[in-house]
Write a protein that binds this DNA or RNA. Structure first.
Lengths: 330, 330
DNA sequence: ACGGCTGCCGAAACACTTTCGATAGAGATC
DNA sequence: GATCTCTATCGAAAGTGTTTCGGCAGCCGT
């Protein structure tokens, strides 16, 4: 059980194997200039002596941090799944803004070979520090527009917002509410601007009373839906900023005695796996979350290995997924 | 950008700071015998020279693997959230049974300080290898009963199955179908045995036609529900082995034109966050997934630090959560 | 037979880490 | 005030493992 009870040194192994110390070191590190027979023999002696490395082996694949603000959403799991499909060892950490300590500093000095930061608020100062450090970093869905020195991955949120709203307009809706995420989130603003653009093109004025903000979770959608559904001039459709919010809208509609899509059309954003399972199945705008994670992983891998990045900013395409929660207004 | 472009050595730093090389090393490693003033000065010189350690810093917290078979379910996210709350650095890996390579071997030689294995099939040989290695391992929800040498964390699945079924019986149901997970999973068998025990106590015979198995996901519940709902003597209630399966049952019921809970009561297992959001909100048996993850993390931490484990096997309590998907049969 | 070429290995240089003894300054004691 | 611990701090030296580089076989073609 005791790890340090007279652990054998490389010198001991080398003597036992009848080779030089550097050769043993090379075997341990998988270097190329060792004859297969020698390698096998040394490996066997290492096993016999139960050799444990003094310094932890540097892993075959780069060890990188993936920083979430919270692990509270299937959204994050999709991203994570994508990242783990890249050629990386993924350490999951949650660093809420409020948590103690300077997490950017911890990231830089944490000894990882890189980091992926998911939907976090990076101040200009943080970005400069990250840029100044040697630590490769890729940001997914940045809250604020990242400076040119920080590579980032996102989705075509504006197009997605446009597509969602045009879908509702084509169905014949004119009073369309939008429930965005937190007001200052870049992705949220882009979706709402897409909503605005669609209304503009259709010649529909934007009613500020139908433009709400809430957190991206169930609660946010539920609360804001209650507000807009209580309006005298109730909307006939709601564009929610996330699928989770959309589920909250569904619940608010149910509690208000409104049938979906009969009395109210609801469209979400993300296309989480469970969007297909709600009743009615949720019309939504697909965001390729796993692909975004995988892309970020690949970019980070390139940064670590020194390959040149094709571009600092990648936006993956969103796509309208029509299901059963949207229909013509009655 | 280039990592290895003439990085400063400790000797250079030492010279620039006017101290000896070992002193710089001590500052880097946070050793105690350095005067605060000296430490600050050296630290500043290190920063000025943008020093990056050659060998990655050994992390302050133990670096452990968390092995999933797949990252395809909110279930896994809940577990993961719990584990990350322990005092550990968590590397997420997915090792499907089918994936190439000997993942147990990779685990042992992977250089981690420990591992948590989630719902994996560990053969007796694997267990012996893990026991023989120095690598501390904790298993969450083992597929097979683990041997005494492998610590494990689970939930009171039998009690949960009992509680779920008794809930349905108390409501007046007599024909109760059960859709378990894969037939050989320990947790699934325990839940079904709980179901059997409840029927026995109520003097209701077990109808083999009402006992189905499917994968733990939406598909499994959907497919098996289609089978039992097509029976001439249709059940009035379904106990699903997981919430995801229960969602599949809800969909099958909807497609069959059955209202829930009017025509069919449905109860799930897990209490995922979205169980509250389905329509109707899902009655289910709560499994404290995050707590299980945290408990496994704590046990692993104890194993790593050498503290004695109180027990090799922990089962956390499940609890019935009545919501709106169960009611008296019509 | 000879020259070039390549694969394999170890001596030596390197990059740290750790141990341990030296030293100086602060109190404590006489 | 003189001296005597005693501790905090530091670096010399030894230890551990990695990397570079030169050398030496054996192999091949000429």
């Amino acid at each position: 059980m005791t790890q340090h009870a007279n652990r054998p040194t490389l010198a001991v192994i080398a003597a036992a194997a009848g080779v030089s110390l550097p050769t043993v070191s090379k075997v341990l590190n998988g270097k190329q200039d060792v004859a297969p027979a020698t390698r096998a023999h040394v490996q066997q002696v290492l096993d016999q002596h139960n050799y444990v490395p003094l310094t932890p082996r540097s892993p075959a694949r780069p060890l990188v941090d993936v920083v979430f603000t919270a692990l509270d959403s299937p959204w994050g799991m999709e991203i994570l799944r994508g990242v783990t499909e890249a050629d990386l060892e993924v350490v999951v950490t949650t660093r809420s803004r409020s948590s103690a300590g300077d997490w950017v500093q911890e990231l830089i000095t944490g000894g990882r070979q890189g980091a992926i930061v998911v939907t976090s608020r990076l101040t200009a100062a943080d970005q400069r520090r990250l840029g100044g450090s040697e630590l490769p970093v890729v940001v997914i869905d940045p809250v604020d527009m990242p400076g040119p020195e920080v590579p980032s991955v996102g989705a075509t949120n504006w197009s997605g917002g446009l597509a969602a709203t045009e879908h509702l307009i084509e169905l014949g809706h004119r009073r369309i509410a939008v429930i965005g995420g937190p007001e200052d989130y870049l992705c949220s603003r882009a979706r709402i601007d897409g909503y605005r653009a669609a209304l503009d093109r259709a010649g529909i004025p934007v009613d500020p009373a139908l433009l709400r903000h809430g957190d991206f979770h169930h609660e946010g959608g539920y609360e804001q839906a209650q507000v807009v559904l209580a309006l005298a001039d109730r909307p006939t459709a709601v564009f929610a900023g996330s699928d989770e919010q959309a589920f909250g809208v569904l619940e608010a509609a149910r509690q208000a005695g409104l049938s979906v899509p009969g009395d109210l059309s609801v469209i979400g954003f993300d296309d989480l796996p469970m969007a297909r399972w709600s009743s009615p199945p949720l019309t939504t705008v697909r965001q390729p979350l796993a692909d975004m994670g995988r892309m970020a992983g690949r970019m980070l891998h390139d940064l670590i290995t020194g390959a040149r990045l094709d571009t600092q900013r990648v936006e993956l395409a969103t796509q309208l997924v029509p299901r059963a929660s949207t229909a013509r207004p009655s």
